[in-house]
Lab assay of single mutants.
Amino acid sequence: WIARINAAVRAYGLNYSTFINGLKKAGIELDRKILADMAVRDPQAFEQVVNKVKEALQV
């Protein structure tokens, strides 16, 4: 799951650890299995999560 998430978030200019930190700051409580599945099956929803994380990180 970690490898999938890392590959997906790198397309948005983040790395895995920064993304996970941003999830916590944004108050998003999705587990890694769901995030990895979302990255593959629903990229639009995953992009929305990434955008919320970037807002929380102020990137």
Rank of each mutant, 00 (worst) to 15 (best):
D37I: 07
Y16K: 01
A36L: 14
W1G: 12
V9K: 00
L14P: 00
I28E: 04
I28L: 07
R41W: 10
V53F: 01
F46Q: 00
M38H: 02
Q44Y: 09
N6F: 03
L23R: 01
I28Y: 09
K24Q: 10
A11I: 14
F19D: 00
N21W: 14
V50K: 01
V59Y: 13
V9A: 09
N6I: 03
K33W: 13
A11Q: 13
V53E: 00
F19R: 00
N51E: 10
A7K: 15
A3V: 05
S17L: 12
Y12N: 02
V40P: 02
R10P: 01
L35W: 04
N51Q: 08
M38N: 02
L14A: 01
Q48A: 13
F46H: 00
Q58C: 08
F46R: 00
R4A: 13
D31E: 12
L14S: 01
Q58F: 12
E47I: 06
A11F: 06
W1A: 15
A45D: 06
N51F: 15
A11V: 11
D42H: 09
A39E: 02
L35P: 00
L57E: 04
D37N: 14
L57F: 05
V53T: 04
V50G: 01
S17E: 10
N51C: 06
D31L: 07
V59Q: 14
K33F: 10
D31Y: 08
K52P: 01
N51D: 10
L57T: 08
Y16C: 04
W1E: 15
K24N: 08
N51W: 14
K52D: 09
K54M: 11
Y12G: 01
R41I: 13
I34R: 12
T18R: 13
N21M: 13
L57N: 06
G27N: 14
K33H: 07
Y16R: 01
D31H: 14
A45K: 12
D31S: 13
Q48W: 12
K54D: 01
R41Y: 14
K52N: 08
N51V: 12
A39T: 15
M38R: 02
E55A: 13
E47T: 06
L35Q: 01
D42F: 08
A26I: 07
A26T: 13
N51K: 08
R32Y: 12
G13H: 05
D42L: 10
A36Q: 02
L35S: 01
K24Y: 14
K25C: 05
N21R: 14
L23N: 00
I34A: 08
S17I: 14
V49R: 02
T18V: 11
E29K: 14
K54R: 11
G13M: 03
A7E: 15
I5D: 00
V40H: 13
G22M: 03
W1I: 15
N21K: 11
A8I: 03
W1T: 15
K54T: 10
V53H: 00
R41S: 12
E29Q: 09
A26Y: 02
V53S: 08
Y12V: 03
A45I: 10
A26E: 04
A7C: 08
A11S: 07
D37Q: 10
G22D: 01
G22E: 02
